[in-house]
Amino acid sequence: LQAFIKTLTGKTFTVEMEPSDTIENLKAKIQDKEGIPPDQQRLIFAGKQLEDGRTLSDYNIQKESTLHLVL
């Protein structure tokens, strides 16, 4: 599935991932794409901060969901 990552500066980019991917995997993909170390990334979806060990499906993240990236 493709999801949108929106930063506080208003920049939006897309990442490809599977519902079974962990938040940790997602942070690694963001690092590959944007060069931001995972330990500096905080991802917010539906008002909740996402925990590394959980999966996208745990948070009911669907295709074309928008996640907010806070540094």
Rank of each mutant, 00 (worst) to 15 (best):
L1W: 11
L1T: 06
L1G: 06
L1Y: 10
L1D: 04
L1S: 06
L1K: 05
Q2G: 05
Q2K: 14
Q2Y: 13
Q2L: 15
A3H: 05
A3Q: 04
A3N: 03
A3T: 10
A3M: 15
A3S: 03
F4K: 13
I5M: 02
I5D: 02
I5R: 00
I5K: 01
I5Q: 02
K6E: 07
K6Y: 09
K6F: 08
T7A: 05
T7Q: 05
T7V: 07
L8T: 14
L8Q: 14
T9M: 10
T9I: 06
T9H: 12
G10N: 04
G10Y: 03
K11S: 07
K11C: 08
K11W: 11
K11R: 14
K11D: 07
K11T: 07
K11M: 08
K11E: 08
K11Q: 08
T12S: 10
T12E: 08
T12Y: 09
F13Q: 00
F13T: 01
F13P: 00
T14R: 08
T14W: 11
T14I: 13
T14F: 10
T14P: 05
V15Q: 01
V15C: 03
V15S: 00
V15M: 06
E16R: 07
E16D: 11
E16K: 08
E16Y: 13
M17Y: 15
M17E: 00
M17C: 13
E18V: 11
E18H: 14
E18L: 15
E18N: 13
E18F: 14
E18S: 14
E18A: 12
P19Y: 13
P19H: 09
S20W: 14
S20P: 03
S20G: 12
S20Q: 09
S20R: 08
D21Q: 07
D21L: 04
D21I: 05
D21K: 03
D21G: 07
D21Y: 05
D21M: 11
D21C: 04
T22H: 03
T22L: 08
T22I: 04
T22R: 06
I23C: 01
I23N: 00
I23S: 01
E24F: 14
E24A: 15
E24N: 08
N25E: 11
N25I: 14
N25H: 13
N25F: 12
N25T: 14
L26R: 01
L26F: 03
L26I: 08
L26N: 00
L26K: 00
L26M: 06
L26P: 00
L26H: 01
L26Q: 00
K27G: 01
K27S: 01
K27F: 02
K27A: 01
K27P: 01
K27C: 02
K27W: 02
K27Q: 02
A28H: 12
A28Q: 13
A28N: 11
A28K: 15
K29S: 04
K29N: 03
K29G: 02
K29H: 05
I30D: 00
I30M: 01
I30L: 04
I30R: 00
I30N: 01
Q31P: 00
Q31D: 04
D32T: 11
D32E: 15
D32H: 11
D32F: 10
D32G: 08
D32C: 07
K33G: 04
K33T: 09
K33L: 14
E34Q: 10
E34D: 04
E34I: 15
E34G: 06
E34F: 14
E34V: 15
G35H: 06
G35P: 02
G35S: 04
G35L: 03
G35R: 05
G35D: 05
G35C: 04
G35K: 06
G35Q: 04
G35M: 04
I36D: 02
I36Y: 15
I36H: 10
I36M: 04
I36N: 02
I36R: 02
I36W: 14
P37L: 06
P37Y: 04
P37M: 05
P37R: 08
P37F: 04
P37W: 05
P37Q: 05
P38C: 08
P38A: 15
P38E: 07
P38H: 11
D39S: 13
D39H: 13
D39I: 08
Q40R: 12
Q40Y: 10
Q41V: 07
Q41N: 02
Q41M: 13
Q41R: 01
Q41W: 05
R42F: 12
R42H: 11
R42L: 13
R42I: 15
R42W: 09
R42M: 13
L43D: 00
L43C: 01
L43F: 05
L43K: 01
I44L: 11
I44D: 04
I44R: 05
I44W: 15
I44Y: 15
F45D: 00
F45A: 03
F45I: 05
F45H: 08
A46L: 12
A46I: 06
A46E: 15
A46C: 09
A46H: 14
A46D: 14
A46W: 09
G47L: 03
K48R: 11
K48W: 06
K48C: 07
K48V: 14
K48S: 09
Q49E: 15
Q49Y: 13
Q49C: 11
Q49M: 14
Q49K: 08
L50H: 01
L50Q: 01
L50F: 02
L50P: 02
L50W: 03
L50R: 00
L50I: 04
E51V: 07
E51G: 04
E51I: 08
E51Q: 10
E51S: 06
E51A: 08
E51N: 06
D52H: 05
D52C: 05
D52T: 05
D52Q: 05
D52F: 04
D52N: 12
G53M: 08
G53A: 10
G53R: 09
G53T: 09
G53V: 06
G53Q: 10
G53D: 11
R54T: 07
R54C: 08
R54A: 09
R54H: 12
R54L: 11
R54F: 13
R54E: 06
T55I: 08
T55E: 03
T55D: 03
T55G: 03
L56H: 01
L56I: 12
S57T: 08
S57F: 09
S57A: 14
D58W: 12
D58C: 03
D58F: 14
D58L: 02
Y59H: 03
Y59T: 02
Y59Q: 03
N60Q: 08
N60R: 06
N60K: 08
N60V: 07
I61F: 09
I61V: 10
I61M: 08
I61C: 03
I61P: 05
I61S: 04
I61Y: 06
Q62N: 14
Q62L: 12
Q62K: 12
Q62D: 13
Q62M: 12
K63H: 15
K63G: 15
K63D: 15
E64G: 15
E64C: 09
E64V: 07
E64P: 04
S65Y: 09
S65K: 08
S65I: 13
S65H: 10
S65N: 10
S65R: 07
S65F: 14
S65Q: 09
T66Q: 08
T66D: 04
T66S: 06
T66V: 15
T66N: 05
T66A: 06
L67G: 02
L67R: 01
L67I: 15
L67C: 01
H68Q: 10
H68V: 14
H68R: 07
H68M: 14
H68S: 07
H68I: 15
L69Q: 01
L69R: 00
L69V: 06
L69D: 00
L69M: 07
L69C: 01
V70K: 06
V70Y: 13
L71S: 07
L71T: 10
L71D: 06
L71H: 06
L71I: 13
L71Y: 11
